[in-house]
Simulated assay, not measured.
Amino acid sequence: MKAAAWLRWESMLALVLVGEFVVFSMLTPYFLDPLTLSDATFSFTERAVIALPLALVIISGDIDISVAGIIALASVAMGLAAAEGVPTGGLVAIGLATGLAAGIINGALVTIGRVPSIVATIGTMSLFRGIAYAVLGDRVLKNYPASFTHLGQGYVFGLVSYELCIVVVLALIAGVVLHFTRWGRCIYAIGSNPVAARFSGVAVNRYRLMLFAATGMCSGLAAVLLTSRLGSTRPSIAQGWELEIIAMVILGGVSVWGGKGTIPGVLMAAVALGIFGFGLSLLNIPGIVMSIFVGALLIAVVAVPAIGERLRIGARP
């Protein structure tokens, strides 16, 4: 393997992932147990479902901070429907449709309303979460059918869960779209220079709207899986997930300025962060440590390359 390959972001993430397995297997004898590793996948699958389409949004030069609010809204919609006796198929459809509608609202604000995506989605984040609290208050909805809870708790075969299979399928779809189709080339072009992309004949706003819609629908899917796994709905569901999901995308090598990033990098970052958090929980380390780590990591991943680029430019004769 060429030396340059080892310097690729994905290669470094792979080394980090291997290091995590080595360290945690030394610190706790339970880490490498197959059942434990199967449980560990649930620490990243639902977040990865959103991180994959969100990576496309950020590569295109936008951002969506409302994803956890969409989960709360979709979960409340499913909980209310379940209380009325709606079967599993209907609940899944309601979750996906709620997420899709929320994503279209975000996309419309950005493309038609011309609101900066960070401003628009901060607003809708509060809106969606606020609606969930307004509807439920301090109530918890638990009237879900047994077949629904199987979606987030069941296994396709052996110790391979439905959630893990869904993530793999979505990663393949996102990878093919981004790296092997005209769609992907247009997404990179929009993120690099939206004005030039528009003059090249790319329907920039149409792509942006569809990316927000896809992210919203995947947030609805994550709501289905998370609600199914927990077996209940409360307005605080997925509180604070925005930071963790964005961290997965940025740690995966996606540039916050758009135009750069890969799906394999995002997938490996999702696994690495999930395994790290799960390993800390096995060691009974408080969750706040994970929050501190994610915050510091985000600052480092964004700031260090920028500082390095400035130093490089300043060093030119």
Rank of each mutant, 00 (worst) to 15 (best):
G99H: 12
G113M: 12
G113F: 10
L159N: 14
F128Q: 07
L151R: 07
Y207A: 06
R129P: 08
S147N: 14
L127H: 07
T149A: 02
A108T: 15
G103R: 12
R129D: 09
S236T: 15
S117V: 06
T181C: 01
L172G: 11
L136E: 08
V202F: 04
V160A: 08
K142C: 10
F157V: 15
G154M: 03
K142L: 14
L209C: 12
A189D: 01
A223S: 14
F212M: 11
V110E: 07
R182I: 04
P145N: 05
L96H: 06
G130C: 11
A214G: 12
P194Y: 03
F199S: 04
R208M: 11
V115S: 06
I105F: 15
T233W: 02
M125P: 04
Y188M: 03
G152V: 09
G201L: 06
A223F: 09
L136F: 03
V160P: 02
Y162L: 02
F128K: 07
A196W: 04
L100N: 09
L209Y: 14
R234I: 04
F212A: 10
V168K: 01
K142G: 05
Y188E: 02
L209W: 12
R114L: 09
G154T: 07
I173F: 06
G175Y: 07
R229Q: 13
R229M: 09
C218Q: 04
V160Q: 06
R139W: 02
L170Y: 06
A222P: 08
L221I: 09
A189Y: 01
H150R: 11
V160H: 05
A102W: 06
Y188D: 00
V167N: 04
L211K: 04
L172C: 02
I118Y: 14
L96S: 07
G158K: 13
L151W: 11
L109W: 09
I122C: 10
G216I: 12
I118G: 05
I122N: 10
I187H: 00
P235S: 08
K142M: 15
Q153W: 06
T121E: 09
H179D: 00
V140M: 13
R198W: 03
V177H: 00
S126D: 03
V204P: 06
I187F: 00
F212Y: 11
L159T: 14
L151T: 08
